[in-house]
Amino acid sequence: PTPPYLKWAESLHSLLDDQDGINLFRAFLKQEECADLLDFWFACSGFRKLEPCDANEEKRLKLAKAIFKKYILDNNGIVSRQIKPATKCFIRDCVMKQQIDPVMFDQAQTEIQSMMEENTYPVFLKSDIYLEYT
């Protein structure tokens, strides 16, 4: 069978599908001071999984606000800098108007994912941290 660390080199998704892969990628991003990219990506997925029902409404609103505040509000943050202004406006409007939709962070997540696929992920595959692991 293919060892997990070789699978991690196939695609970003195969890396993010494996707990050890996530931990190593996170350690690398932390070293590069951009671990927030990965946390934001998972936060978006987690948010989408929260079912919109009466029991969850308060939690979803609180969580949407928390994600917005932590990763998007500060324009100098590593995540915020990688998201298009129109996408940030859209999310801000959703939060302000309390229109909390499961897919409200999807576009921002896609933008961060593309950035990781083009930039941090290929660099990770050439990094000492990955090569030492393999």
């Binding site: 494996d18 707990q19 999984k49 609180k62």
Partner: peptide
């Protein structure tokens, strides 16, 4: 009441793969 950070952490963990 959960703090914002706890809520975020719980959300991030919920999206991670559980089974290796």
């Amino acid at each position: 009441i959960d703090s914002e950070d706890d809520l975020l952490q719980e959300c991030i963990s919920s999206a991670m793969p559980k089974i290796k």
